[in-house]
């Protein structure tokens, strides 16, 4: 896939980092304001997709990228499941138990395990939306025989 002009490349370089940071902000404040893992993850994936679209890549690096992202996605999902099953060990010993101290309403570090879920779900969603994009490009780029 070819890249775009120098103007587009420079603009994308300038704003992609900011979009990524905004995604992180939405994820981290997920338990306080609207948003959270899914919305923030999609924003983060958007910044990655912007970079690839503007700069262009070749087919082999796309495939390599797709493999690495799959592993990140699976690992993040496993972390979510591990946090959920950790509820078996602490507190009232049930699945999905919120075993950490709750803190004060409105603080950044509060609400027990919810921010942890948000972070891992955010990574998972960013990776999976990125994988969807990559796979669709790979399907399109595969040379027809």
């Amino acid at each position: 896939m070819k890249g775009m002009t120098i103007i587009v490349k420079k603009t994308a370089q300038l704003i992609a980092g900011m979009i990524f940071m905004y995604g992180i902000y939405v994820i981290v404040h997920g338990h306080l304001t609207p948003g959270g893992g899914f919305a923030g993850g999609v924003i983060m994936a958007g910044s990655l997709i912007l970079v690839i679209l503007s700069h262009g890549t070749d087919f082999f690096s796309l495939v390599k990228e797709e493999m690495g992202t799959t592993i990140v996605e699976s690992a993040a999902t496993i972390c979510v499941i591990l946090i959920a099953t950790a509820g078996f060990l602490f507190g009232t010993k049930v699945f999905f138990n919120n075993f950490l101290p709750k803190g004060n309403v409105g603080d950044l570090v509060s609400a027990g395990v919810l921010p942890l879920y948000n972070i891992f779900v955010g990574i998972e969603v960013a990776a999976s939306v990125f994988i969807i994009f990559l796979s669709l490009i790979i399907f399109k780029e595969e040379s027809p025989k």
């Binding site: 899914f38 969603v125 939306v129 969807i132 796979s135 669709l136 399907f139 399109k140 595969e142 027809p144």
Partner: peptide, 19 residues
């Protein structure tokens, strides 16, 4: 979230069908 997954899968199948 579920709708995102189904739409993505449907588009993948459509691209393959076009091929």
């Amino acid at each position: 979230v579920i709708g995102l997954a189904t739409t993505a899968l449907l588009m993948a199948v459509i691209i393959r069908l076009y091929r």
